[in-house]
Amino acid sequence: MNTTYNESLSAASGKESWKRGDTAKRVYDFETREQSVSQRDFAKNNNVPRSSLRYWVARKNNIDA
């Protein structure tokens, strides 16, 4: 069996990697949404784990620039 380290790592974690452009778009869409839509509902409607969305938003808010 010839499996590279990267292939075995992604198979073991089972986590999906998000591209920077996709995450930025989802954070932007979340921040410009109607205020009546909760973070939980937004994540569910956009097929994003709520924990990932919460992390992305928190990370953006902590940028020094």
Rank of each mutant, 00 (worst) to 15 (best):
G14F: 06
L9R: 15
Y55E: 06
A43W: 08
N62K: 15
D41L: 13
K44S: 02
G14T: 04
E34Q: 11
D41G: 00
W56S: 07
D64C: 02
Q39Y: 00
W56A: 08
K15L: 11
P49M: 13
F42D: 02
R33Q: 04
V48K: 03
K25I: 03
Y28G: 04
A12I: 13
T4P: 00
D22Q: 14
F30I: 03
R50I: 15
Q35R: 13
N45A: 11
A11S: 12
R26N: 08
G21T: 09
D41R: 15
S10H: 04
A43T: 08
R54T: 09
E31R: 13
A58I: 06
T32A: 07
A43G: 04
R20N: 01
L9S: 06
E16C: 01
D41S: 11
S38A: 09
D41P: 00
R59M: 08
T3Y: 12
K15W: 07
F42V: 02
R33V: 02
E31L: 12
A11W: 07
Q35F: 04
A58W: 08
D22T: 14
W18S: 01
T3N: 09
V27E: 01
N6I: 06
V27I: 11
P49N: 14
N45F: 13
A65G: 13
D22C: 04
K60S: 05
N45P: 00
A58G: 09
R50Q: 14
A12R: 15
K25W: 09
A12K: 15
S13G: 04
V37I: 15
S17Y: 10
I63N: 11
G14I: 06
R59W: 07
I63G: 05
N47M: 07
M1T: 14
K25Y: 11
Y55Q: 10
N46R: 11
K60G: 00
F30V: 03
Y55F: 11
D29V: 01
W18R: 08
N62A: 14
G21W: 13
W18I: 04
F30T: 02
E31A: 03
A11I: 10
A12S: 15
F42L: 02
A65V: 10
A12F: 13
N45T: 04
S38H: 04
N2A: 11
V37Y: 01
T23P: 00
V37F: 00
W18F: 14
D22H: 15
A11M: 10
D29H: 08
R40F: 05
T23C: 01
E16D: 02
M1E: 10
V37E: 10
D64H: 06
N62P: 00
F30H: 05
W56H: 06
S51G: 03
Y55M: 07
S36A: 10
N62L: 14
Y5E: 07
L53M: 06
A65E: 07
A65H: 08
V48N: 02
